[in-house]
Each structure stands twice: as structure tokens, then as C-alpha cells.
Nucleic acid binder design. Structure first.
Length: 613
RNA sequence: GGUCCCGUAGCUCAACUGGAUAGAGCAGUUCACUUCUAAUGAACAGGUUUCAGGUUCGAGUCCUGACGGGAUCACCA
């Protein structure tokens, strides 16, 4: 049984015996003892003052004595200002280490047979991936790993938003200005090439719009539609969408293309297929760089017409309402307003598509939970979607979760494609690896390794820096991404944690000492040793918590703590040249397990460990 | 304007979900490599947790109200 439960039950028993009152274990507040005091766990005695009618310190004394007398694992106590600090017997920690070192897969829960689907990445196929996608992908991947380790059966999916106006923009620009340029002919990565034409389109549109603003037609629009005192510049700044839809020549061409696409026009479809295939080839490279894979891909072009039967069901149940051809849902009672589900021309919306996709996925996999990793600007969309699915009584409705993450800002402000401040995913990956290479070459520690081995190490280090930098931050927070700091290799960073692992491997190589059975004779634990074991003890609980809260930052912070304490331990205690053979055995065993747990917890973040660095 | 999120050290973030003297890293100032990897360790300095009230043994955390930043309020996806 868990030591925390043991203590909690001990406290319950103490209250019962000493004060003659039945309480539940949930009434016992406990925490890890702060490091400035002696002890491992702390029980807060304030809540018992009413029951005992005594002062907190007095209760602490009585309770401490009771626990030492009645619980084998508690070896001592002290009371400070109403806080009862309990010391756990060294023997408990030592046998725990023996136990962990004997098990195969410490931290991994046995399968609970429950299926959870994680949707992440889900880009629009009109341009390459950028920093925002990276946060999404890392979160999605990491959550998948965490859920899997917590015992779930995880299905990783993405939906490729491969149709619509944006995609047609790239297509139109390529067709008009591309001169048949291909990834092969240009040497440009497929997604980058398509993105280049998307940007070109936006540029042409902008030029066209600027020119139009000088025309008398534009002036008329301005005069008839401006708000009072609004100058021409700010008026036109906000009018761009209307312009695109109603006046733009290229806009009209794009919309015609979209209609042809929907009518299955062979020529447009062929172009679409070709350009999308370039994009997918490009994405594959980026995903490989980031070391992520998916179990199934969904395509919006296959799913955007789904949802009809869900809507039928909703209408019959009275959840949805018809207004001519239009279908809407009234969620005023839960403050979500009225939303259109089917437009008055009978076509689908984002909501109807997602309803259909949810059903399709359930038919495919029968999962009971779905985690949607999507930016927080879509919070209300998912609230509506989940509410409808719940009212429809879908079996997975209670397991729906929108993992909403905040946008990434640069130190200079928001990322804006208009201002060219978008950070490209491929560039960023190349940059962090380059930085790791520079650092390593300067140091010269890997000079004896073959080139591929070295490059592989640089890749691991650079990606560790990037991934850790992003995942250590609570997902729901908007974050500031400083490219400079993301490649830092010191302090609270991925490479710092890798370094702890590398030190361990180095020691184990040099010790060359397989039999550590003498560790059981080790006498008194050093404080850093205790701390390490106590952290190891917490690991499964951290995974559980991270799985429940869908929060990789908890795992990141745990990994850092473990590495940090190890570095201190390494500094304070000799391992190979320890005072006694028992101490050596013990420390080798401890280091081995710490190494395994660091590797595993970082693995949950999608970060690999190098053997040397 | 309605709804939702955020506000903690110069900067980037924590704080075990209401517990002790609010912790880390970076940047700054020192110290420690003839040693199992110094991508390390130790120390100093840095705070009215945006502000004002409230709830209670106890508030960065909960409530109310300001202030500041952001998202969203489409028959776009």
C-alpha cells in the first residue's frame, strides 16, 4: 500500500483512539515536508482542533507519538507550529528501491482496456507547419504517451483540413504563376513550395486591394458604409474580407475553383491531389524530425459532408430546430447562444462536420474518451460541440475534452503572417540542432565518435531543448517563445536533464559492476539519496495526475526535479569510489533506477536520451 | 458591451488544488575542475503575488469589485 495512505489511515486511527471521533481519510491534509525541516511527510493538525479541543501543537505531539508507536514505517516526528513532520524509516526507502529495481517497467500501469483518442496537429494543407503547430504536436504526442503509460489504449489521429478556400488560394496561385514548378524541379520541400504560393496569392490579393482602394467604386463604398469619423485607412483595413468576397478578381477565381472542386471537376481535382501530395510528403519529413506518428489520418474532404444522420437524430429528439433549410441549435440555457448547424443553402458548417466526424470515429474505434488538442481560440466551438453530443446521448459524450492551449508570442509580440514573423517549424528544428552542434563541437567531447553518431546526438540534444522548453509550460497559458532561450543548454532545460542521464551512463560504464546485491547492507541514507528515492516513489502518481489533467508540464517539472537532485547527489557522494562496498552497490543501484526513470519520464515528453554528450 | 482565460523576482516559469519563511532557471556578483562528464555544484542578491475589500485558525490559491493583457461573440474552418 502507498505510504501516504498508510499514514492517513494511521491518523484516522489516532483521531479515533485519542479523541474518540470517526473521520474519513479525506479529512487528513498531508504534504511533503519542506526541505528546511526534518522529516518526509507533514500532517496538518489544524483541522483537528475542533474535534480534540486542544491546541495544534499538543495534538501534533500526541498524534506523532501514536504514529511512531503504531506504524512501522514512521520512525520519528517533530512538531513545528502545528505541523506534524513525520520521518520515514530508512528501511522503508531501501526496500522500496530494491523493489523498483527488480520490476521491469516501473511507472507503467497495466492496461485498463479503456480506449481514448487523441486528435492533434490537424493542419490546413495550404502551407507548412509553424511554431503554433509545434506546441500542438508536442502536447498531443506527450499526452498520448502519458495516457498510454497510465494504462489507456490510445489512438492518435489528425484530421487534415485539405479543402476549402485557403487550399484553393495556393492552387490558384500555383496554376497562374507557378510555371509548373514542382518540389523536384525546384528542390523545395513540398509543403514549403505550396506555402510559397499561398503567400504569393496573399500578396497579389493585397496589391489588387490597394489598387482598388483608389477607384471611384471604392470611394463610394467608403462614403456609404464608413462609421462616423472613420478615416479611409482604418475603414479599408477592416473591409478586406468583404472585398475578397464581393469585389476581388482573384477572390472570385478562387471561389469558382472551390465550386469546381465541389463539383468534382477533373482538372481541379487533379491539381488538388497533386499539390496535397506534395504537402503530405513535406509534413512527413517534419513529423519524422519531431519523432511523432499517427495511427490514423482523417481527411476533411472525406468528412465534411458527414453529420446528416446526427442532425436527423437531433431534429427528431427536438434538440435541433429547423428554420427553412437552415438548422440551428438553441443553447441559450447554458449561455452558449444560438448556433447554426446547417446553413440556409443546406450546406454544412464546422459544427456539423465535427458532429459527423465524431460519429465516424466512434464507429471506427469505439473509444470512450476523445481529447481534442486545439488552440484556445476555439473554446466556444468545442463547448457547443460537446453540448450537442451530450444532448444526443452519444456514449463517449462524458469523455470529451478540449485540450486548449494558449497562443505563442515572440518577445517582439504576436506572430503575424502579414508581418512575416511566423516561425517556421522546419527552420526552428534545424536551428536548435545547429545550436546543439555548436555547443558540442566547442566542447569537443564527442570527437572520437563517428559522424552519424555525433549528428544523432546533436539532434537529440537540440530537440530536447526545444521540446522541454515548450512542454514545461502549463498548456493553458499563453507563452512567450524566445528563440534564444529555447536553445539554452543550461539550467532548467532539456539538455540539463539529459546530462544527468549521461553522467549516470558514464558511471555505469566505468563501474562495470553488474552485481549490486550488497546494497541491502547499506546503513544510513544521505539526504540526497533519500530525496532521490522519495522522488522515484512519486513517479507513478505524477503520471496518473498528468493523465487526469492532460498536463505534460507536470512530467517536465518532475524530470527536472529528479535530474537536479541527482546532480547534487553526484556532487556530494562518490559512487564508484564509495566508502564501503555496500555503499557502492547501493549507489550504483540507485543511479541505475534514476537513469531509467529519467529516460522514461522524458520519453513521455517525446525526448530521447543520448548515451554521451 | 456579453462570455471565457491570464496577471507571481529585471526576464521566462513553479507553487502538490486552502497550509509553514512564495520556489526554480536565466541575467548579475562570488566560490569550487590533478576528482565518477563543469551542459555541473555551492553561496549572495533579487517579492506589498496588479490594486481594494471579504470569507477563516490560515489566501498567490476561494468570493466581490476595480485595473491591465488576451481570446471569442459568423449561415469561416
Amino acid at each position: 500500500m502507498n505510504i501516504i495512505n498508510i499514514i492517513q489511515e494511521g491518523v484516522v486511527k489516532a483521531v479515533n483512539t485519542l479523541y474518540n471521533e470517526e473521520i474519513g481519510t479525506d479529512k487528513v491534509t498531508m504534504s511533503a515536508t519542506r526541505k528546511e525541516f526534518t522529516g518526509d511527510f507533514t500532517v496538518v493538525t489544524f483541522p483537528f482542533t475542533k474535534i480534540a479541543r486542544k491546541k495544534p501543537d499538543e495534538i501534533g505531539e500526541e498524534m506523532g507519538k501514536f504514529l511512531v508507536d503504531n506504524i512501522r514505517e514512521v520512525s520519528g516526528y517533530n512538531v513545528i507550529k502545528g505541523f506534524l513532520n513525520l520521518e520515514i524509516d530508512d528501511q522503508f526507502w531501501k526496500s522500496f528501491l530494491e523493489e523498483v529495481s527488480a520490476v521491469e517497467n516501473y511507472g507503467t500501469q497495466t492496461s485498463n482496456g479503456r480506449k481514448v483518442m487523441v486528435e492533434f496537429s490537424s493542419p490546413n494543407t495550404n502551407k507548412p507547419l509553424h511554431l503554433g503547430h509545434i506546441r500542438n504536436i508536442l502536447l498531443g504526442w506527450s499526452c498520448s504517451q502519458i495516457l498510454e503509460t497510465a494504462g489507456y489504449d490510445v489512438i492518435k489521429v489528425q484530421i487534415l483540413n485539405d479543402r476549402g478556400v485557403a487550399v484553393c488560394k495556393s492552387m490558384y496561385a500555383w496554376k497562374t504563376f507557378g510555371n509548373n514548378e514542382t518540389p523536384e524541379s525546384s528542390g523545395i520541400k513540398g509543403d514549403q513550395l505550396v506555402g510559397k504560393y499561398y503567400v504569393l496569392f496573399q500578396q497579389k490579393l493585397k496589391e489588387e486591394y490597394s489598387a482598388w482602394q483608389q477607384t471611384s467604386e471604392a470611394l463610394e463604398v467608403y462614403n456609404s458604409k464608413k462609421k462616423e469619423d472613420q478615416d479611409q485607412e482604418s475603414f479599408f483595413k477592416k473591409y478586406d474580407k468583404v472585398y475578397f468576397n464581393e469585389y476581388s478578381v482573384v477572390g472570385k477565381a478562387v471561389k469558382e475553383m472551390l465550386i469546381k472542386w465541389e463539383d468534382n471537376d477533373p482538372e481541379v481535382r487533379a491539381l488538388w491531389k497533386q499539390m496535397n501530395s506534395w504537402v503530405y510528403a513535406g509534413y512527413e519529413v517534419t513529423y519524422k524530425d519531431l519523432n511523432v506518428t499517427f495511427d490514423k489520418l482523417y481527411y476533411e474532404s472525406d468528412t465534411y459532408l458527414l453529420g446528416k444522420d446526427m442532425i436527423q437524430k437531433g431534429l427528431e429528439a427536438g434538440i435541433l430546430k429547423e428554420d427553412g433549410k437552415r438548422v440551428l441549435v438553441d443553447l441559450e440555457d447554458v449561455k452558449l447562444g444560438v448556433k447554426t448547424v446547417i446553413k440556409s443553402d443546406g450546406t454544412s458548417t464546422y459544427t456539423s462536420q465535427d458532429l459527423g466526424t465524431a460519429k465516424l470515429r466512434y464507429e471506427d474505434f469505439g473509444m470512450e474518451k476523445v481529447v481534442y488538442v486545439v488552440g484556445d481560440e476555439q473554446i466556444s466551438h468545442f463547448k457547443v460541440l460537446f453540448e450537442i453530443l451530450k444532448r444526443l446521448g452519444e456514449p463517449y459524450a462524458d469523455g470529451l475534452y478540449h485540450l486548449a492551449y494558449g497562443m505563442i508570442d515572440l518577445p517582439t509580440g504576436k506572430m503575424k503572417s502579414r508581418e512575416g514573423t511566423i516561425v517556421d517549424a522546419d527552420d526552428l528544428v534545424a536551428e536548435v540542432i545547429g545550436e546543439a552542434r555548436n555547443g558540442s563541437v566547442e566542447r569537443g567531447d564527442l570527437d572520437d565518435l563517428p559522424v552519424e553518431k555525433r549528428e544523432d546526438t546533436y539532434r537529440k540534444i537540440g530537440l530536447a531543448a526545444l521540446k522541454y522548453f515548450i512542454l514545461k509550460i502549463n498548456p493553458q497559458k499563453r507563452m512567450v517563445f524566445n528563440p534564444q532561450e529555447s536553445v539554452d543548454l543550461q539550467g532548467d532545460t532539456g539538455p540539463y536533464i539529459q546530462n544527468a542521464f549521461v553522467r549516470i551512463q558514464s558511471v555505469l560504464r566505468k563501474a562495470d559492476h553488474a552485481d549490486t546485491s550488497g546494497s541491502v547492507d547499506y546503513k544510513k541514507l544521505e539526504s540526497s539519496e533519500r530525496e532521490l528515492i522519495a522522488l522515484l516513489y512519486k513517479f507513478p502518481e505524477i503520471i496518473q495526475q498528468a493523465a487526469e489533467q492532460y498536463d505534460p508540464a507536470l512530467v517536465a517539472s518532475f524530470s527536472f526535479d529528479l535530474a537536479k537532485v541527482f546532480h547534487r547527489f553526484y556532487h556530494d557522494c562518490k559512487i564508484i569510489t564509495a566508502e564501503t562496498p555496500a555503499a557502492k552497490d547501493f549507489r550504483l543501484k540507485l543511479s541505475t533506477v534514476v537513469g531509467q526513470v529519467i529516460e522514461k519520464s522524458m520519453g513521455l515528453l517525446g525526448i530521447e536520451m543520448p548515451e554521451r554528450m
